[in-house]
Design a protein around this nucleic acid. Sequence first.
DNA 1: TGCCCCCTGCAG
DNA 2: CTGCAGGGGGCA
Length: 304
Amino acid sequence: MPELPEVETIKLSLQRKIVGLVIKKVEVKSQNSFSGDPQEVEGKKVLNLWRRAKVLGIDIGSYQSSAISRQTKQKSLKAEDRRLMTILFHLKMTGQLIYEDGKRLIGGHPTPDMTGPMPGKHTRVIFEFSDGSRLFFNDQRKFGWVKVMGPRSWAMSRELKELGPEPLEKGFTWEVLKNNLLRHKSQPVKVTMMDQKVVSGVGNIYANEACFNAGIDPRTKVAALGDENFKKLYRGIIKSLQDGIKHGGSTRAHFVDPEGRKGYFLDYAHVYGKEGQKCKKCGTVIKKITLGGRGTYLCPICQK
DNA sequence: TGCCCCCTGCAG
DNA sequence: CTGCAGGGGGCA
């Protein structure tokens, strides 16, 4: 599910809620969704949330209360407790992070099957905080995962080290985009744009929208693009992602933020999911094709 | 580079 | 029943 804007939306919402809380208990309901030792998480305080590409990270560290100190009399245990750890989340297609404050969910319940009473049918991992609030990792299709990693080892992890540039950060320029796209000259530009090594965080929805924004046919081979095209794509990618964040992400079926709220970007999208509808710019009927096995939408007039 | 696969559920 | 769905890893 989530692409960059959805994960960013989750991060922004969740960081207002859980920074400073202590994780009291971790309950793993689906072993395949979780790797690492739950014990290494329990008793640690949430320090910081961050996002890299479509991965969400929660940094956790030692909790220096007298209660904990009494339990960990041995120095080695204390040292262990002091270690910084990170919990990584990838939500893939149907993952959700739902935060329940006390007894009830904050916000609406737009998709009752996925954000009804928690834990639900698809709840895979539950984090319980010392104030009684809980964070639920739900994932209908079980493609997503939660991984507990040692101090800073995530930076070198397979999940993150080969990712391309963050499109909303300084190092991303049209030249960088051009160079990375050109590693796959014979591929359709939209397929290449979704390669996380080329640029990170762009998935199917925003790749479709970026191509529309750029006025470029998604089937165009990278080799056929000129500098003007790369500049348009560069701006098109950034605009689609920023618009996505502005509207709280995209809800096709499953996405809700940690407070149960849908994202409304698709109400403003130009092509994604608009097959058979008229292009808002020129009135031509939006077409749906398949590219690289993924549904692809375009306006045959606006995109050349 | 292109398939197949992971898994579940929903629409046609 | 078949095909399709915000992703991406592994294989030939």
